[in-house]
C-alpha cells in the first residue's frame, strides 16, 4: 500500500468538494450530478501526497469514524486525510468493500435525521469515488439518530453522535 499516487483531475475535485457541501444554497436547482462532468476529464491533474507505511498512515487507517458539524454533511479537513488513507488501502485491496454508516444527533425530527445521516454517508462515498474507488464497492446506510454512541444531551455527547462510521467487509 505504499508509494501509490492518487491523481485527481482538479476541476473534478473542486466540483466534488463543492457538491459535498450539504446545506449550501445552490442557485441552479438542476445542477448536473458530478458523474456528468467526469466524462470531460481535463488533462491537468493534482497529486495527493502519497501515504507511507509509517505511523501517520497507521494512525489514519485506525480512524474509522468521521465527525460532522451540526446539520452539516461537509467533511472536515482532517477527515479528508482519513478517507484518502482508506482509499489507498482499498486501491491495494480490490476485494474489500465498505459500508458507510451515517448518523445524526438527537436534535430535530427522526426522519430529517435519517436523511441527514444518509447525506453524510453519501458525502463520504462521493469523496471515495473522487479518489477512484468504484461506487460498487461503497454501500451507504443511515441510522439517523437511532444509534447514538453517547446519551449525553449536550454538545459533548451530540458531537460524538454526528458521524459516519467506515465499516470494512473482507
Amino acid at each position: 500500500m505504499t508509494n501509490r499516487f492518487l491523481a485527481l483531475p482538479a476541476a473534478l475535485l473542486a466540483l466534488l468538494l463543492a457538491s459535498c457541501g450539504g446545506g449550501r444554497t445552490v442557485p441552479d436547482e438542476q445542477a448536473p450530478p458530478p458523474a456528468v462532468v467526469e466524462e470531460a476529464v481535463p488533462e491537468e491533474v493534482v497529486t495527493v501526497q502519497p501515504l507511507q507505511d509509517d505511523e501517520e498512515t497507521r494512525d489514519l487507517l485506525s480512524r474509522t469514524t468521521l465527525y460532522f458539524a451540526y446539520d452539516s454533511s461537509d467533511l472536515r479537513e482532517e477527515d479528508r486525510r482519513v478517507v484518502e488513507a482508506h482509499a489507498l488501502y482499498l486501491a491495494d485491496n480490490p476485494d474489500v468493500r465498505l459500508t458507510l454508516e451515517g448518523h445524526a444527533d438527537e436534535r430535530g425530527t427522526r426522519e430529517y435525521n435519517l436523511a441527514l445521516g444518509q447525506h453524510r454517508s453519501v458525502a463520504v462515498s462521493r469523496y471515495f469515488q473522487a479518489l477512484h474507488i468504484g461506487a460498487d464497492r461503497l454501500d451507504t446506510v443511515s441510522y439517523g439518530e437511532e444509534r447514538p454512541v453517547s446519551q449525553i444531551q449536550e454538545e459533548s455527547g451530540w458531537s460524538l453522535n454526528r458521524r459516519v462510521e467506515i465499516i470494512y467487509h473482507y
Binding site: 450539504g22 446545506g23 445552490v26 446539520d71 430535530g108 425530527t109 430529517y112 436523511a115 447525506h119
Partner: peptide, 27 residues
C-alpha cells in the same frame, strides 16, 4: 436538489406535498 429533501406530507385534497429541505442552509 443537492440538499436534503425529506418528510413529505400530503395536503388533504391531494394537490400539494409539503416537505423539509435544508436547501436554504437550514431545515
Amino acid at each position: 436538489h443537492t440538499a436534503i429533501d425529506t418528510e413529505p406530507a400530503w395536503s388533504p385534497d391531494g394537490r400539494h406535498i409539503v416537505f423539509t429541505s435544508n436547501r436554504s442552509g437550514s431545515p
